[in-house]
Nucleic acid binder design. Sequence first.
RNA 1: GGACGAUUAGCUCAGCGGUAGAGCACUCGCCUUACAAGCGAGGGGUCACUGGUUCGAACCCAGUAUCGUCCA
Length: 854
Amino acid sequence: MTTPELPTQYTPADVETRSYSRWESEGYFRADPGSSREPYSIVLPPPNVTGVLHIGHALDHSIQDALTRRARMRGKEALWVPGMDHAGIATQNVVERKLGAEGLSRHDLGRQAFVEKVWQWKEESGGAILGQMRRLGDSVDWSRERFTMDEGLSRAVQTIFKRLFDDGLIYRAERIINWCVRCHTALSDIEVEHSEDDGELVSIRYSDEVVVATTRAETMLGDTAVAVNPADERYTHLVGTYVELPLTGRRIPIVADEHVDPAFGTGAVKVTPAHDPNDFEIGRRHSLPSLTVMDEHGVITAHGPFQGLDRFEARPAVVAALRAEGRIVAEKRPYVHSVGHCSRCKTVVEPRLSLQWFVNVGPLAKEAGDAVRDGRTRIHPPELAKRYFDWVDDMHDWCISRQLWWGHRIPVWYGPAGEVVCVGPDEQPPAGYTQDPDVLDTWFSSALWPFSTLGWPEKTADLSRFYPTSVLVTGYDILFFWVARMMMFGLYAMEGQPPFQVVALHGMVRDQYGKKMSKSFGNVVDPLDWIDRFGADATRFTLLRGANPGADVAVSEEWAAGSRNFCNKIWNATRFALMNGAAVGELPSDLTAADRWILSRLQHTIEAADAAFEEFEFAKVSDLLYHFAWDEVCDWYLELAKIQIAEGRTGTRLVLGHVFDALLRLLHPLVPFVTEELWQAVTGGTSVMVAQWPVADPRYRDPAAESEITALQELVTEVRRFRSDQGLKPGQRVAARLGLSGTALAAQEAAIRSLLRLEEPGDGFSATARFAVAGVSVEIDTAGAIDVVAERKRLEKDLAVARKEAAQVSAKLGNEQFMAKAPEDVVAKVRARATQSGEDIARLEAQLAALPAG
RNA sequence: GGACGAUUAGCUCAGCGGUAGAGCACUCGCCUUACAAGCGAGGGGUCACUGGUUCGAACCCAGUAUCGUCCA
């Protein structure tokens, strides 16, 4: 391949679209279940079809893409399954809002027409997400793209529902559920967000001796008892008696219940079984009637004067009426207490007695916990496993019915005489039966994702090959929402095989001050904006570089710019290598110390990168490749290579080719685009995507070369420091005498002189400064008086450091306890430091003494 | 109310018993023929606080404070 003319700046837009289309058309993303390779599979956590990908998705995808690309390069049959979920409430809300703008409601259209509208919207919205994924570089197998509402997945939903129903794990019951009065549907516990809100605490006198406190005064209309703790002596004599409920005239009993906290308020609580989960339980224990006083809109349905009032209008109205009767004995406003809100629309959730479908999670949750306990699935980082156990070990039954139109219709049909029939995928309901109008919670279908996407319930080749999946990558925020549910259903449907070998959790993306991103705060980053401005690689690298396991990731524009600079650095370094004929081939036998050093460092880097990848330490992988590339390859090896090339060492081009070939392959999973472009140029290969992942070769380990180059770096850095302190311009050549003979650097004189712009001492050589470093004496003729003040300052600073070191170290050596108890190698190290600091002090003192007065 | 996590350089974070680190920001000098999206040099930290364990603590233990998250 001829050396291409590469521009001096990397322009991501030029290569990204081109590379992605080529990868796709070449079929590199496709997995073959029939191959003999070891499988490696990931299912993408399906984004909501209604939304767009935010920077958090970009992090999630970058991690998965890095894992998938590395696995593919390591010769695995790598499969990354893409898709989206139908997001029941969210999607229905969006479409209803659009209809609302035209003055229509879903009821105007009717169920069938409305659902058709939603499908239209899904095509529009979902397309945007797919475009974003391509821009990010996601190497997903598009031929296997799935949607939770598509035919196969709907069949999976119906199949598992039927099985669970037949096993008695799905039931219908009247329970207190979380009701959203705006979305008009039941919600599960985890779809309710609690926040500390200002409210009021009103104490109401029910009788001379009974005062109750409540934050929801309007619910007193539905009270059917007052409860006290059985051990509370203040009320013992009242248990079993009745009080008259104010405003209503109803007589309600006073019951004793252990769950009443005698320390709260007066120790007596009102009991409203139809409108409070705790009260519902008390009601059950004492066979109290449940009295519903509110409809599904949150409007009061009982008691003349309040009937027709919204719950928030009824509250002050009820309090006013009670006050008029002299019943209000205390009011606290504001009273901060925890209030539940619909996670979708933020409306205050109303606990409501209602007939719903539930999953009996008992046996499923136990199995989900056990699978992690016995190691079938590993949660990473392990600290987060506790949160998982806390959840699955104390899980409440899961309310799965939703009063929506968009979603999987519950496959249960009712007969004229109240018969209930659950219908499987290939069955027909009996004639004259009508189907349950409700749909299933979206998470019900998402919970099947790791196997429904692979073809379950059919016994497909994909399923047998790629299940259980290798790893699930997702944020710790949906450990309960989603992970626990996939574990339950996966273990149930797949006979004890959990859906993932590893669950790798990452954190949330935050701004540069660690603040949560929010639209109202205005600190939201749009991944497409960054991709446009900095490139997809820089966007990915910024996120990965901050991704420590389970921890949040802070990002900012400055850091994205830094990542772009890194990509540009790689671009220019490779450009340099190509300009000097870098080529891949058998390495020459006469390698220089610099060559052997960089090859040795490469082995370290490969091993460290592998180790970090295995532990999902993406920040570490990024950081170590960054430093190998920039500090070692660019700052040192390329500079040394320039000298070798000038000396006519043609073998250098093969070392350059070898190093860049490996480096670009190592970087490819993180920054796929720039590495593809450059790797093809260096190697002439088809695609780095299908190149082999580098394998560390211990034969290239070379401690001797490493210590030689380390010494060179020390010497060069020290002389540069001298030059800088003396105000010598970088390009200014000065004469110097180097005492290299007999040192490890004897062979490096040419390189050292070149790096430091040091000329051979000429006839009139007269050293104006002398010092030693790494065992090498350096005498420099600065061609003029040196800056004595600067030099004295430099030496005194070094001397202070050396003296401090000597003091610390001799204190240790003088400590009998330390000498007796510290391990041998530690003592030896301290002794060496003592020797070194002693020599440094003597040398520096001599230099200071030799300095002309100034 | 319960649980967990955090507290290290101006900012964001690594390090988790044996000489305090990175990126960005900052200061100084440089258009040195790959790169100014760059090169070289430099400044900057009683590792939240108080005790304890240890020859030795940023690191282990106990407590305190502050912040954050989740659950109720």
